[in-house]
Amino acid sequence: MIISIASGKGGTGKTTVATNLAISLEKDVQFLDCDVEEPNAHLFLDPTIVKKEQVVAFVPQVDLEKCTFCRKCMDICRFGAMAVLKKDVMVFENLCHSCGGCFAVCSENAIMEKERSLGTIEHGVMDHISFTNGRLEIGQVMVPPIIKKVRSFTNFETITIIDAPPGTSCPVIAAMKGADFVLLVTEPTPFGLHDLKLAVETVKLLGIPHGLVINRAGLGNDDVKSYAKKQEIPILMEIPFDKKIAKIYSNGQMIVDSLPGYREKFQELFDKIMQLMENRENR
């Protein structure tokens, strides 16, 4: 069972909901932090890191002894990553998407695959939570391969909680696709609503059942609620706008450890998700 936590807009409380939900469950949970540009969940869960590994992509390396400078590799490359000169071939590794086109067309076997580092993956544990996150290397742009690598560790025997990145483009898709449920976190403000609508379109495109958490409830207006009602998106939890909660978050602490009643509220949230999934299966 994979629950992906997403939002459209950044800073609405994805990580807060994901980490507090994970810690509240009284069973084994896997936590995958897929916000690889700005991973934050480890700051709250504080897992003991047991293993680190590199995420690599393959880029071409040309053997100039074998190369006949025929330009086939340059012609097939849609990303402008190769430039064939008179007696040299330049490879722009940062532009390469590792599609393998150049390897496939080279009739002289002059192209070898070289590894390029995109980022790192960390595995850790914290009580009942097994934790994995990805971290994009500074200056790199290939985000989806790192997210896919993080997700390759999915343990289908347990509950998996994915902390997704903001937005609606390829990184978010990589963090949502194949999830059983998407929990959308929003705030009741015009920006929150605008980006929620985009997130809902994204989830609908992928055909994944979804529900809503309204964070900072009471801060803005009721437009998010009317929208959810109209779209028949169930509101599964509301977290009030409260400076105390903001302060707890700012120190890297968990709401469920600091305020009474919240552990139960997050357990309820989980039960509601399970109930929705069950109803869906019965239909």
Binding site: G10, E38, L136, I138, Q140, V143, G167, P171
Partner: peptide
């Protein structure tokens, strides 16, 4: 600008 540090930010 966009959030993050990836492709659109660069």
């Amino acid at each position: 600008g966009p959030p993050g540090i990836g492709c659109p930010v660069i």
